[in-house]
Structures are given as structure tokens and as C-alpha cells.
Design a protein around this nucleic acid. Structure first.
Length: 579
RNA sequence: GCCCCUGUAGCUCAAUGGACAGAGCAGCAGCCUUCUAAGCUGUUGGUUGUGGGUUCGAAUCCCGCCAGGGGCGCCA
């Protein structure tokens, strides 16, 4: 550091990055910025920056080489690479995994609480692949945030009231009065919804009848309320089963039907305070001309309608109340996240902005995390109205059936009970992984072929690596790995080094995934660890190696298994013992 | 018209402003008397949509353009 200061090199400005993999570990920094600064200050002596950077790197290397306690250093292309001593580094990585076990990679508790709202299914509609993305993504984000050190509140906000529910009730009353649900309730309800939508499209005059049902709901007409309560429960039961099948849980449920009243009160308050414009006297709506209120010249937040002209509530009405409801329940929330598809970006911007204008400060802690849609081949949007849906239950059934068939073929020694479990783990994992391994902002096209492809970069590949680790440890008949005094004192195979390298990256990947709300980061490192292990498995015998090598490798295998298990857990994917 | 997202290998996707743009799939050539072949090894494949700019350095940041998708006063 003193040396650097003497050279006018600001040590604090040096960025340290991993060295591109070359069979050794180390950390590296470059002197391009230093050289560029020199050149700018006229001290560059006319030497091109890259060359000058290399000169500095060499000078620093010369100096450091005279110091004791520093191993292998290299100056190349303007970079200064410090290499760690292999045996020490490898041992430290493996030891820390085996010591920390299922906490390996976990962050320190931050003491700060974050709410993540996700899934928000609509009652009286089908639950299809389109809903799967937000649900799976939300679950993984919660798992990652929790592991990274946050206290997470998992919130669900089912749409149990709104025009779609009213439409369903209307369709039922008019065409299916007193009908009992079919065995598959969710599917049956979805069909009634699709039928109602179709009839309304064919004859727009029927709108008035639907509005009339909405009015009856608003006046709490006993027949409508009773029917709503009964049918709503059918849907909710369906959701409970669905979440159980997906291995997803929630801490708190909010229902938009509960936010109608408080929402309308907020609307009235906004009108009183002159923030909202009340056009009801002219037969219009209540709305907030946000840009106008803020005095913006260019349109940005636009205008938000917050109450219908017939005084029934919109989602906007209810969302205003929900923001407050959440902070009333959890006053210490540092963040309130809304994981909702990208089409609702403007809506949330408006809701949060309106509350901010009204002086409600927690609104600034709210943010919308947008994700893109799942479409069907040919850019067909999944729509319960159009009936272009792939139902989640069909998807789950297909995936597990396919996984079971595959498992039976690959490993005939499995018992029926084991097959069952493997099919669950593999089928579900195969569905989740492609969604999680993709940037949130990218469209996912669903097709059966790739959904049921279990090869290559997919969950089964990672699960298989975990199973192989397990298999080796079982065959080695290791009772415990505690207190082993073994190290990586032999010459490591490149595959071994890469595997250790990948494992060592896991903790920082967790932090990145949490900071950016990106399960993709975990999906990638999980795959990288599995891939490195597959090469290692092929190149490095464990059980039949010499005792000293065998023991070190057994510990590495155990560490790999642990790292894979931790990563899979964050993705909500089961790590099987056998498959 | 305004705003947002996307454009990387034949296909699906990666890549904190840093070293040679990487994987999978598909294709081609190999590997199972040795820890499960849902695997491994090798190989083919690139003007990162396009034109400028900033920078020592750009797939990445800024501006223009092209193409696709989404949103924009009573759907959610």
C-alpha cells in the first residue's frame, strides 16, 4: 500500500476481480485506470495506456516479489494476478462448506423485514401456465432473500372480487343455476368463466345484466353474497391443493374483496383534499390526473381512474388500501415488493405515486418487480377468457408421468415408492428450472417438448449430480466427515480445481441474486457446480483412489452435495437421494 | 403520439464497463467388464439488429434508426 501511494496509485480505487479460470485460483486487479489517469495528467510519456498499465503491473510485481509471504504473482496484459496456494485454498473452501452445512452460502441476518407479494391468483378462473411464472419466481425470490439474511413475509393477494368474478356469477345464475360442480372443480369453474366471456362478446347488450349483478353485490344482496362465498371457497380449496403440489407456502393472505371499503374511503379522502377529480356528478368516474397534480409538462404518470362511475371498486381502488393494510400489519417493513407481470407496471407506478402525493411515506418503500409473460407457440397469449390455456394440473401430471417413465428406464432397481418420489422431484424441478433460469424481463414460450426435456441444462441434470454425490458417499460407507485430518496435498486434477472454484463462488452469488431479485443467478451457479462435478466424476476416481486422495475427494464430494442441496433449496427444487 | 421491455451461434439462453463473448439443444466423431451414460471427451457454428458517441477498454453506458412485444381514463 505504501508502495502504491508512493507511485500515486490510489489503492482504494483498484477493483479486485477473479482471474479468468486458468487452473489456479487467485484474485486480480488491473492498472488501466491508473495509466489513463496519468495520460490525462500529461504524465503518460506518450506511452499507450495498455502498455503503460502493463509497465505499472510489472513494477508492482517486482516490488511485491521482494516481500515475504506472497506466493505466485504474475503481471500480464496490464493485469496483476495474485495466485493463492492451491492446497490451502482448496482445503479452506471444502472445510467451510462442511462446517456450515445447510448454512453454507447464507448471509448474516440483516434484521430487516421485506414483504414479497406474489402469485395473486384469481378465483373463479383456471390456474394455468401463465400463473406459474409469478408463483415459482416469487417463491424462489423469497427463499433467496431469506437465505441472504432478510426476514421475509410471503404475501398472497387472491383476486376474489372484480369484474371477472361478477361475470362468473352472472353466467352461473343465468345458465347454470343450481348446478353442482363437476369432480374437477377448478376446471369446471374455468369453463363457466370462459362461457360467460364468450356470450358477452357475442352479445354486448348483456353487459347491463352483468352491471346489475355488480350492483347487487355492492348492496350485499344475500343471494349474490351467499353464492359468492360458496363458489369462492371452491376456488380457494383448489389453490391450496395447487400450492401444496408446488411446495409453496404463504405467511399471509390479503383479499381484494376486503379492500373495497377502505379503498373507497381513501378515494373520498383524495376527493376532499383536492387530489382526485370527482366527475361523478357528470356521470363520470373519480380519477387522479397525476401529471397535472405534479405540474409536469410531459406526460409521465398520466391519469388513473380510481373509482367507477357506478361507484363500484376497481383494482386501483383496492390497491390503494392494500398498501396501507400491509404496513399496518407489519409496521417495520423496510420494503414491500409486488411481483406482478409487466403489463401492470404503469398501474403500480400510479398507485404508489398517488399515495406519495397524499403524503403517505411508506409508499416509497413499495416497488413493483415486473416479469414477462408466458406465451404459447406462435406468440399466443395464455388467456382463460379465450380458453387458450395449458392447465397447471395437466402440466404437473404430464411432467411427473414422464419423469416416472424415464426413471423406471434409467434405474430399474428403484422401488415403486422411490419411483413415486423421484417422479415428483424430477417432474416438478423440470418445470420450475426453465422459468427460474431466465431473465425476468424475457418472454417464456411454453411448449411441451422443452418442458419435458430432462437433458442438458435442466433441473434433472443438477439433481442427478446430487444423486451421484450421495451414491459415492453411500458406497464409501462414510460414517462421519468430522475430525478428518486430510488436505489437498496431492496435485489436483483441473476438474477438481474447477469444481472447488465453482463451489467457492456460491456465497457471493447468493448475495447478488438477493440484491437483484434474480433466481437466475442461483440457477446458473447450481448448473455450473453440477457441470464441474460431472467432469470431476468422469476424470477423478474417488473410492478407488489412494487413501490420501480418496479421503480428500470424499470430503470434496460431500461439500459438492451440500452446495448443490443448498442451491436447489433456494430454487424450490427437491434434491433427491436416488434417481 | 408518449412510455417500458426485448434483439447475442441454426434454435433456447448466459455473460458486476475488463483478459479469448460462453452453455444447452440440434449436427458431426468418440467413450459403459471401473463410484448410476438423466453422464463424459472432442468438434462444427459469431460483424452481439444497425449507425454514431463516451471510454485506455462497450454485448454492457448515451443518442439516432430498424424489427418484435407490452402499456397508455371506468380490464386486471
Amino acid at each position: 500500500m505504501e508502495f502504491l501511494a508512493g507511485k500515486d496509485i490510489p489503492a482504494a480505487e483498484l477493483k479486485w476481480v477473479p482471474i479468468p479460470f486458468s487452473g489456479e485460483w487467485g484474485t486480480s486487479t488491473s492498472f488501466f485506470q491508473v495509466a489513463a489517469n496519468e495520460a490525462r495528467a500529461g504524465k503518460g510519456q506518450g506511452i499507450p495506456v495498455p502498455q503503460r498499465a502493463q509497465q505499472i503491473a510489472e513494477q508492482v510485481k517486482e516490488f511485491l516479489a521482494q516481500q515475504v509471504g506472497i506466493g505466485h504473482i504474475e503481471a500480464t496484459k496490464g493485469y496483476l494476478n495474485f495466485y493463492f496456494e492451491t492446497a490451502t485454498y482448496a482445503g479452506r473452501v471444502v472445510d467451510s462448506v462442511l462446517e456450515q452445512k445447510n448454512h453454507f452460502g447464507a448471509g448474516l441476518r440483516t434484521g430487516s423485514r421485506v414483504m414479497v407479494e406474489f402469485s395473486h391468483p384469481n378465483t373463479h378462473k383456471a390456474f394455468h401456465v401463465g400463473h406459474l411464472r409469478g408463483t415459482i419466481l416469487g417463491d424462489a425470490i423469497c427463499r433467496i432473500l431469506e437465505f441472504a439474511g432478510f426476514d421475509v413475509v410471503r404475501a398472497n393477494y387472491p383476486g376474489d372480487m372484480g369484474l371477472h368474478v361478477i361475470k362468473w356469477l352472472w353466467g352461473y345464475l343465468k345458465y347454470h343455476q343450481d348446478e353442482q360442480p363437476a369432480a374437477d372443480i377448478t376446471k369446471w369453474m374455468g369453463e363457466i368463466y370462459a362461457e360467460a366471456s364468450k356470450r358477452l362478446e357475442e352479445d354486448p347488450d348483456l353487459e347491463t345484466e352483468v352491471r346489475a349483478v355488480y350492483a347487487r353485490w355492492d348492496q350485499r344482496d344475500p343471494e349474490v353474497v351467499a353464492l359468492w362465498e360458496r363458489t369462492r371457497e371452491w376456488s380457494l380449496e383448489g389453490f391450496r391443493q395447487m400450492y401444496a403440489a408446488l411446495d409453496i407456502r404463504f405467511d399471509v393472505y390479503y383479499f381484494n374483496s376486503q379492500e373495497e371499503k377502505p379503498g373507497k374511503e381513501i378515494v373520498e379522502e383524495l376527493v376532499r383534499r383536492g387530489i382526485a377529480t370527482d366527475e361523478r356528478p357528470q356521470g363520470g368516474t373519480v380519477l387522479v390526473k397525476i401529471d397535472e397534480v405534479l405540474g409536469l409538462e410531459k406526460e409521465k404518470y398520466r391519469t388513473a381512474v380510481i373509482l367507477r362511475s357506478d361507484e363500484t371498486a376497481l383494482y386501483a381502488t383496492e390497491d390503494l388500501a392494500l398498501v396501507k393494510h400491509k404496513f399496518a400489519d407489519y409496521p417495520d417493513l423496510e420494503k414491500s415488493l409486488y411481483l406482478v407481470d409487466v403489463r401492470q407496471s404503469l398501474h403500480f407506478t400510479q398507485v404508489f405515486k398517488i399515495l406519495e402525493i397524499a403524503g403517505y411515506e411508506p409508499a416509497q418503500k413499495c416497488s413493483h418487480i415486473a416479469y414477462e409473460l408466458v406465451t404459447l407457440p406462435g406468440n399466443v397469449v395464455v388467456s382463460s377468457r379465450e380458453g387458450t390455456v395449458v392447465l397447471l394440473e395437466d402440466l404437473l401430471r404430464e411432467a411427473t408421468a414422464r419423469a416416472q417413465e424415464e426413471a423406471r428406464k434409467k434405474n430399474p432397481s428403484l422401488t415403486e415408492e422411490q419411483l413415486e418420489k423421484v417422479a415428483q422431484a424430477v417432474g416438478l424441478g423440470a418445470l420450475k428450472y426453465p422459468i427460474l433460469a431466465r431473465e425476468n424481463t424475457k418472454l417464456v414460450t411454453f411448449d411441451w417438448k422443452s418442458a419435458l426435456d430432462f437433458n442438458g441444462q435442466a433441473a434433472p441434470y443438477i439433481q442427478y449430480a446430487h444423486v451421484r454425490c450421495n451414491s459415492i458417499l453411500k458406497r464409501a460407507n462414510v460414517q462421519t466427515l468430522e475430525g478428518w485430518n486430510v488436505g489437498f496435498t496431492y496435485e489436483l486434477h483441473p476438474a477438481e480445481i474447477e469444481l472447488i472454484d465453482m463451489i467457492s463462488r456460491f456465497p457471493s452469488e447468493v448475495q447478488q441474486a438477493a440484491a437483484e431479485y434474480k433466481p437466475l443467478v442461483i440457477a446458473s451457479i447450481a448448473y455450473e457446480i453440477a457441470r464441474a462435478f460431472a467432469s470431476f466424476y468422469d476424470a477423478c476416481p474417488v473410492i478407488h483412489a489412494e487413501p490420501q486422495v480418496r479421503d480428500a475427494r470424499l470430503r470434496l464430494v460431500a461439500a459438492t452435495q451440500q452446495a448443490l442441496a443448498n442451491a436447489l433449496l433456494l430454487l424450490g427444487i427437491t434434491a433427491p437421494e436416488v434417481m
